[in-house]
Design a binder for these strands. Sequence first.
DNA 1: TTGTATGCGTTATCAC
DNA 2: GTGATAACGCATACAA
Lengths: 355, 355
Amino acid sequence: MKGKKTIYQIAEEAQVSISTVSRVLNGSPLVSPRTRAIVQDVIDRNHFSPSALARGLSTSKTHSIGVILPDITNPYFSALFLEIERCAAEQGYSVVLYNTMYGSYSRDFKKSLGESAYFEIALEERLEGVIITGGQIDMDEISADYLKALNRLRREMPVVIIGQEFEGSSCDFVVRDLERGVFLALRHLGDLGHRRIGFLGGEPGVRVTSDRFKAYKRILADMGLACRPTYVHFSDYYVPSGYAAMREQLRGPLPSAVLAINDMVALGAVRALGDAGLSIPEDMALVSCDQFFFSEYTVPRITTLDQQNSRLGRLAMAKLMGLIRGAPEETAAPPEPRLVLGESCGVKLGTRSFE
Amino acid sequence: MKGKKTIYQIAEEAQVSISTVSRVLNGSPLVSPRTRAIVQDVIDRNHFSPSALARGLSTSKTHSIGVILPDITNPYFSALFLEIERCAAEQGYSVVLYNTMYGSYSRDFKKSLGESAYFEIALEERLEGVIITGGQIDMDEISADYLKALNRLRREMPVVIIGQEFEGSSCDFVVRDLERGVFLALRHLGDLGHRRIGFLGGEPGVRVTSDRFKAYKRILADMGLACRPTYVHFSDYYVPSGYAAMREQLRGPLPSAVLAINDMVALGAVRALGDAGLSIPEDMALVSCDQFFFSEYTVPRITTLDQQNSRLGRLAMAKLMGLIRGAPEETAAPPEPRLVLGESCGVKLGTRSFE
DNA sequence: TTGTATGCGTTATCAC
DNA sequence: GTGATAACGCATACAA
């Protein structure tokens, strides 16, 4: 835009060398208070801001990291991202966000770059590290090409994956205990006497879904209950899909309760049940696996699992920063999901105080 | 992480000069097909990715822009951001997101930098342009310090503000027609015979609220209706606040309808009305000024305004890219808000119309 | 405490 | 077509 000032011009105007200016800029103690004052004054008067590019080139540190995720409008990802950005800012790091839109609401594949294209960008930008969550990284079958690109990236910078572990990479993982969550939810339903429990939403072929579905089947078996295919309806993670999936369910024999993949799907299901003239929890109980910001305010409130996403984000950042700094990363335990009682399963809530 | 390859090493291995490598990298036509093939091969085999830092230093183009907003978990901002990121990716630009958390749900002021601190970062990072929305930029009274910092930023790069216009800066604006939206909503209520209409949510002192509130008062007057203070309850933009604000409203004399600042507040209000044993729209009708992804699935569906946020984002990006390229920015008309009929006002659906 | 010289990895302007 | 070489703006050993 404008001919930006350089360290040379500051040095000249302050009658010192560029080294001295550099020292002042970086708060080095090897400058006399007098000179520092003079230089700082010149800097301020000129609104001089040193080029992060030049600095990065010289130090090979960019102080920025990347986050690659499919869809920032999904509350799960935005909550995660918020926390990551916050931690980064605290440490003086900037965050570049790459929205791959893989599996997004609008399914705008074509318009968006392939995920591994973003790896190349991260490489060129000399980011100091990358956090990946959702998208290809969460597929049951990860393509060889993708894995190769991932490992190439990993060779150049730390990579932390928020999601389920898989073989074939040296990336670090921050894992959610999906099984534990499903267990809590199903046990709750079991305690309430439910024996016909369905599964609603999520995409087949995606870990967050297939792992939960596996847990669902296993735990159902442990409870001595059958898993009936007619009670299982995949779709994806968004509200309209929850609606559609429940409509589908309503065509067949009804379970007495369903486990929804998250609160968006649950919300869609609630609406579908209402439209069918059925009431919750009398006609069907509902539990969700992932709490979003609105679950306590729907009618009825959704009984759901708090996955502690902000702790998850903080953990991922701690791990990433540890790797960047080369420090011994203390492997803090991943957050435990907690069941948050709503009204969608029929338990009586005490007078809950709001506001 | 690793000793990265440079253009020199590629040149050496390919037995050419760095100029030639650079030409190949940038697809210059002034290279013989033969040499190009050789060089490209060496590049590929070495997984060489040129440093964006060095390139940026040399060309003074970083191909990245910044977005400064208060809270990415707010669906309004995330929808906007998604679109911005998408447009940027299409043009080969990266986006750095700065979450200032000003006015955010969690109100974590202290942990976060002041907004103008991000201006300095944008300057140092040599971003090519910045989009700002929400936060300080949207206050009724913008502090002189902030304005000064903003103008300093503006002097160095294009700045596009998504929000209401104000004096004292040379930034570009992408404006929403808040008044038109309020008009559509209130007319709808008026047509249904409502004469006691309240205002719910939003923060006093913030343009998006105060401008809508002004419009509300003016239009009410035009309709020959009184604006009663007991029907007005500010708070902020989130679900719990909508709940609290409606609880507050329920203590006094009731309006027959309320205008909520957005769907989150509306959702909270729906729940509060339900908890009080009141039904919508029989006991109170509800319209919201900002549609979020869940409004069609709540019980009842919320009659709300589609502000066409993705078009807004696209517009902002078009303007920013125009400024960056120095091209004549065609001032496309800002998107018109449209009323989306739900069930919260009592009209029969099936006759869904859009305006 | 301050200054000098060099490197960082590109692009661009020249010659050839 | 191709190849030197000078910027680009900073940090940093090394000198003084």
